[in-house]
């Protein structure tokens, strides 16, 4: 049996834990909606940067597709008449100089890149972070496709510049975008039919 002193210890710990948990639950209640909203807005800003001007809400029309072991979320951009302008999704480059680089890319229906943006990275300031700050470099992706470019950095015999003192970060980005384009080509008809039909979103969600 516990003696008095031990009971006191258990009770004190229990009480502190219970009150802390209550505090956390309350905070979660108040912050859950604002956090979701902040994340939606951050994604909205990123999507606006990579997509051509569109009339729909890409986040509302988003659908998912199986890819490897996970599900990829894909955002379609349409004009007023519902024609598909571009599809955007996130590619992750696992081989950045320091950790993963998250890339948002938008591809037009014919497989041509519309734009590429880096949404998250830990690359070296002033060197590898050129993948974010070097606008000319980011712009060099526009209009590129599997057919009109060699998807490597110049050092490796490709069409994309590396930076002075930083080859690894641009190389990782180029590789990831290339992988994204290959994925698009392989699943093009499926992707287009999923994003084309007005009810496609529902169909996917209810699918097996």
């Amino acid at each position: 049996m516990l003696d008095r002193e031990q009971t006191r210890m258990v009770l004190a710990l229990l009480l502190v834990a219970v009150v802390s948990t209550m505090l956390l639950a309350t905070t979660d209640m108040f912050t859950r909606e604002p956090i979701a909203k902040a994340q939606r807005e951050a994604l909205h800003r990123a999507l606006m940067q990579v997509m051509p001007p569109h009339a729909n809400d890409p986040q509302q029309d988003a659908f998912e597709m199986k890819r490897g072991g996970s599900r990829l979320r894909i955002y379609p951009a349409r004009d007023e008449r519902g024609h598909l302008l571009a599809l955007a999704w996130e590619e992750i480059a696992p081989d950045g100089y320091s950790g993963r680089i998250r890339i948002l890319m938008a591809v037009e229906p014919d497989g041509v890149l519309h734009a590429v943006r880096i949404t998250d990275h830990r690359e070296t300031p002033g060197l590898g972070d050129g993948i974010v700050t070097n606008h000319a470099w980011l712009a060099s992706f526009r209009g590129k496709s599997l057919d009109n470019a060699t998807w490597k950095v110049r050092k490796d015999g490709g069409d994309f510049d590396q930076f002075t003192g930083a080859t690894i970060s641009p190389r990782a980005v180029v590789k990831a975008v290339h992988r994204g384009l290959l994925f698009f080509r392989e699943h093009r008809s499926e992707l287009l039919s999923l994003s084309g039909a007005p009810d496609s979103k529902k169909a996917v969600e209810e699918g097996p």
Binding site: L13, S20, D28, T31, A38
Partner: peptide, 25 residues
């Protein structure tokens, strides 16, 4: 010590969630 750590961790999590919600950038 475990009591203090629990209290500190709770406040850190509150600040973490609040910043995520209202100072996302």
């Amino acid at each position: 010590i475990p009591c203090y750590i629990t209290i500190i961790a709770a406040f850190v999590t509150v600040v973490d969630m609040a910043m995520n919600a209202w100072m996302h950038e």
